[in-house]
Amino acid sequence: MEMKPLVFELAVAKNKPHSYRKTKNKAICPFCQVADLTDIYQQTGDMIWLHNKFPTLRDTVQTVLIEASDHHGDIVNYSVAYNRRLLSFALDCFNKMQQSKLFKSVLWYKNYGPHSGGSLVHPHMQLVGLNNIDGYSYINEKNFSGITLFNEEDVEVNVATQPVQGYEELNINLLNIAGVNLWADWIQIGVKYLLSVMNQGRADSYNLFFYPREMGGICAKLVPRFAAPPYFVGYKLSQVNDEVTLANEAKKLRAFYEQQQEVNNEED
């Protein structure tokens, strides 16, 4: 399989603001300066989809989706209602890019935390149109399956048995658009679980990737971020934890979901 790499434009990246650089004078967050934003495609309240001012990848159209006005916000601390609106808004933007037929493929993902590969703290997602590359060449349907812990109302959730990188990835599959709110709830609960319970709460960073599935629907894949294992870096070989560990993770996540549901019901 021939897979051309994405070309990174260093000259553009040099001027890009970065929240995690070890400098005394941090750059002013551009996403907090709403009045100065330009090239806005769509906006709903604090949610803003716009063109990326620092397109560091050649032969792409890079866009940013600002999630909220709170500089330190995240899926983990949004209200249930706000998170539902956010995921619906983002899904709509993603569908518009895909349906435009302007790109070979469209990627949708989110970085969170210092080890996620992101550059800015302010909560945002990225939607990137690739002109000449199929960004899903290394991905297949098996990456979205695993030990099922929830399968109701158009949403299926599992712990991946064939992860993209490893060792433990959570797949939250939207099977039908009617279940989009439940899907958003599971994404939020998955993020809370990943940051507080999984790996004894050692993860301070994660990636959230969204994949359109061949059978229809979309998979939201949650990946805790640590240093990438050498087998993946050197050989593109993913690793996965043993079957007993994965089964225990599925059981714990299901229990965490039920606990969170009780908390949400009490708050309502």
Rank of each mutant, 00 (worst) to 15 (best):
M1Q: 06
M3E: 04
E9Q: 13
A11W: 05
V12W: 04
K14L: 10
K16M: 15
H18D: 15
H18K: 09
Y20D: 01
K24P: 09
P30F: 06
F31H: 05
Q33K: 15
V34D: 00
A35S: 12
D36T: 04
Q42P: 04
T44M: 11
D46H: 12
K53Y: 09
F54H: 08
T56C: 13
L57S: 09
D59G: 09
T60S: 05
V64F: 03
A68T: 08
S69F: 02
H72V: 03
V80A: 06
R84I: 06
L86K: 01
L86I: 05
A90E: 12
F94P: 01
S100A: 11
L102A: 14
L107T: 12
N111D: 11
P114L: 12
G117Q: 14
S119M: 07
V121Y: 06
V121W: 09
V128G: 01
L130R: 06
N131F: 08
N131V: 06
D134V: 10
G135D: 04
Y136D: 09
G146M: 09
N151M: 08
N151C: 10
V155F: 03
V155T: 03
E156T: 08
T161Y: 07
V164D: 04
Q165R: 01
E169K: 13
L170T: 11
I172P: 00
L174C: 13
L175A: 04
N176V: 02
N176C: 12
I177E: 15
A178F: 13
G179W: 01
N181P: 02
W183T: 07
A184T: 00
V191S: 06
V191I: 01
Y193A: 12
L194C: 14
Q200E: 07
D204N: 10
Y206N: 02
N207C: 12
L208P: 02
F209R: 08
F209N: 07
M215I: 15
C219W: 09
C219I: 12
C219A: 15
K221S: 01
V223I: 15
P224V: 10
F226E: 10
A227C: 08
P229N: 12
P229L: 15
Y231D: 15
F232A: 00
G234Q: 05
L237I: 07
S238C: 06
Q239G: 15
V240I: 08
N241L: 15
D242C: 14
V244H: 12
A255E: 02
Q260P: 00
Q261M: 11
E262Y: 00
